[in-house]
Structure formats: C-alpha cells, structure tokens
Simulated assay, not measured.
Amino acid sequence: MPVSKKRKFERKTAKRYEFVKFESELFDGEFEFPKLDLAPLRVVEAMNTGEVQKVSQWLTEAGVDPEAIEAYRDLNRNELQDFINAWQDGQLASVPK
C-alpha cells in the first residue's frame, strides 16, 4: 500500500485586501480595516465564536495600525456589534495593487 505524502498548501502570492474607512460612535477618529467580506473563513469562524485573538491576528497580518487593533480589543460584547456594523458599512479606502 503506497504511503501518502504530506502536502503543505501555501499561497503562491501574498493575499491582498481592500480596506475600508469608517468611524465608530465609540471612538474619536477614523478606522481603516480590511473589508470584512474578504476575511478568511478562520476569521469568520472566530468572530462567530468570540475568539477575538484570531481576529486581532488577522488584522495585524493585514497591516492594520496596532493602536486601532487595541481599540477593537478593548470593546465589550455590547459594543462589539455596533462596531462591526460600522465596519461593514465602511467606505472603500484602498484597492490592492
């Protein structure tokens, strides 16, 4: 019986994201985050299960300002949904090159 080889799947090119700009009633200033529609499934799953650290990791990998990530991480459960709604309604800020 042949032994199967372990495969490691890697992207040929780095993933690029469109960014949106939005404001939240909870903070002064404007946020610039990757468009939520383009989030990897692992991030969508993490958002549905409350695993904030995975969302924060994705934001870091995408190049989001660390202070903006910390502001996101400081939200409580009651504030989170309003913030996410503002994020989803954000205006296109940049398109990947």
Rank of each mutant, 00 (worst) to 15 (best):
D37F: 02
Q81M: 08
M47R: 14
E70D: 15
L38G: 14
E10V: 14
I84A: 13
V55H: 01
A86L: 04
F9S: 14
Q53M: 15
L92G: 07
N76S: 12
V95H: 08
S94Y: 11
T49G: 01
R42D: 14
Q53R: 15
E32Q: 13
Q53L: 15
N85F: 03
F27D: 00
M47V: 05
R7K: 08
R11M: 02
V64G: 10
V43N: 00
N78C: 03
T13W: 02
P96T: 04
A39C: 08
Y72H: 08
M47Q: 12
M1A: 04
V55P: 02
S24A: 08
K5R: 06
G63D: 04
I69A: 12
S94I: 05
K35F: 04
F33Q: 03
A93E: 07
Q81E: 06
G29R: 11
R11A: 01
L92K: 14
V44K: 13
L92C: 07
Y72T: 04
R77A: 15
V3P: 12
A14S: 13
T60V: 08
V44S: 11
E32S: 14
T49I: 01
F31P: 04
L80C: 02
W87A: 00
F33L: 02
F9K: 15
E18Y: 09
F31H: 01
R73E: 02
E10S: 08
G63R: 10
Q57H: 11
D89P: 05
P2R: 10
S24G: 07
L36E: 07
P40M: 00
V20H: 07
A46G: 05
K6Q: 01
D65G: 12
V55I: 12
L38K: 14
E67S: 15
R7C: 05
G90T: 04
W87T: 00
A14L: 11
I69M: 09
G50W: 01
R11E: 00
Q91I: 02
W58G: 11
A93I: 05
P66S: 13
A93H: 11
A68L: 11
E79L: 03
E23Y: 10
P96E: 05
D37T: 05
S56T: 10
I84S: 07
T13N: 12
A39I: 03
F31W: 01
P34N: 05
D28S: 13
D65R: 15
E10A: 12
K54S: 02
G50Y: 03
V44M: 09
F33W: 04
S56C: 06
